[in-house]
Amino acid sequence: MFLTDLQQGKKAVITNLGMMNEVVKQRLIHMGLQEGEEICLKCVMPFGGPLMVEVCGQCICLRRKDAACIGVK
């Protein structure tokens, strides 16, 4: 499943970043969001807005269309 399928407040492990836009992927990896890490969906902005996730104790905000490319388990 994908990050966008996760329920708010729930955790999962990142399994696949392969489908993402290259620049976004690089940024996320720099910030610590990489395969094998645990990710928690903190909140979702309305009207298809961005998502806030927590990885390694760091909050990161990313767009929904990018989150939809992150495979989690």
């Binding site: 836009n21 620049v23 976004v24 996320l28 910030m31 961005p50 806030m52 990161i60 990313l62 990018d66």
Partner: peptide, 10 residues
């Protein structure tokens, strides 16, 4: 395309 990733500091 537009890109948006931002870190939210404590």
């Amino acid at each position: 395309s537009s890109i948006f990733v931002v870190e939210l500091p404590p």
